[in-house]
């Protein structure tokens, strides 16, 4: 209570705890997903009626579901879908959003404003809502979900890319490049993109967490990954009828979702602090 009201340096040099924990959690999910291609304790979609609804045991670490399928095996395969959706959704958003933001930031004026207004309209459709609309129009499924979540995240990337670009364009080296009559694409490639790469990576990590959450929500609603492919959201949905009696069925996929999202959030926060603080500005 006796410390001064003013705040000292924000970060001690050295190991960044958020970054480390985030990286470990993300690595855990990635490793589990990779291992699931080669090995799972049981066949995740093979029903064994005799073993149904068994609690956690030495044989089935996380128990079995109402069809006698091993929960751990389903979780492991579910990690694949989670990462797959995240990678594609974030990929779409970055590939479209970053160029839009850079062009808007470099051009300014009417074309720049028009691009950003377009991105603003998309903000009226939160990712999950867009995914539900696409599900209604084209049929629900993993592909529909990924594409919709990707499109929904475009404005986020466009905005950070634009504000980063605006800052880079005010620097002396860009002024020098423009004075030397370097073409716009060369300035974008040589100066703008390398300098906004940091904020783009941070945004990617944060959006990855959002995509994981949205995919889980969609599968929970029955509008995501179709059975029998295991997905965390649907496992949670399936657990609902056994609440109060077989809670492990809800807790296992629930914790998996939370761990994945927490990992990407912490990774994003850590990277935000570590990567070029000059451009990243203040933390949220």
């Amino acid at each position: 209570m006796s410390e001064a009201a003013t705040v000292g340096p924000r970060r001690r040099p050295g190991v960044h705890p958020q970054l480390v924990i985030g990286a470990v959690l993300v690595a855990l999910v990635v490793v589990v997903a990779l291992v699931s291609f080669a090995w799972t304790p049981f066949d995740p979609i093979h029903a064994v009626p005799a073993d149904r609804l068994q609690g956690p045991s030495a044989q089935h670490w996380f128990g079995t579901d109402r069809f006698g399928r091993d929960v751990l095996s389903q979780l492991m395969v579910g990690a694949r879908i989670t990462l797959y959706v995240g990678v594609v959704a974030v990929g779409i958003a970055a590939v479209v959003g970053i160029p839009v933001g850079v062009v808007a930031g470099m051009r300014g004026g009417v074309p720049g404003a028009a691009l950003m207004r377009g991105a603003d309209v998309l903000l009226a459709f939160p990712g999950l809502l867009l995914a539900i609309v696409f599900g209604a129009a084209f049929g629900a499924g993993t592909t529909t979900a990924m594409v919709a979540l990707g499109i929904g995240a475009i404005p986020a990337f466009a905005r950070v890319a634009r504000s980063g670009t605006l800052q880079v364009m005010r620097t002396d080296y860009v002024l020098a490049a423009r004075a030397a009559n370097r073409p716009a694409w060369a300035i974008a490639w040589r100066h703008v993109l390398p300098n906004i790469a940091g904020i783009a990576v941070v945004q990617a990590s944060v959006n990855f967490g959002l995509a994981v959450l949205a995919e889980a929500a969609l599968s929970f609603l029955g509008l995501g990954t179709a059975p029998p492919t295991p997905s965390w959201g649907r496992m949670l949905q399936d657990s609902q009828q056994f609440l109060g009696t077989y809670d492990y069925l809800a807790i296992a996929p629930g914790v998996a979702i939370a761990v994945a999202v927490l990992g990407f959030n912490l990774l994003g926060d850590g990277l935000r602090d570590v990567l070029d603080p000059r451009l990243l500005g203040r933390r949220r």
Binding site: Q18, G209, L213, A216, A217, F220, L236, S239, Q240, L243, G244, D247, A250, I251, G254, I257, A258, V259, V261, L262, N265, L266, D269
Partner: peptide
Amino acid sequence: QVGVAVPNFLVGVLLVSFVA
């Protein structure tokens, strides 16, 4: 930080199980 990562439907499911 942990709370942000928890999906609202997981909170819902746990509330149903324990409170209801």
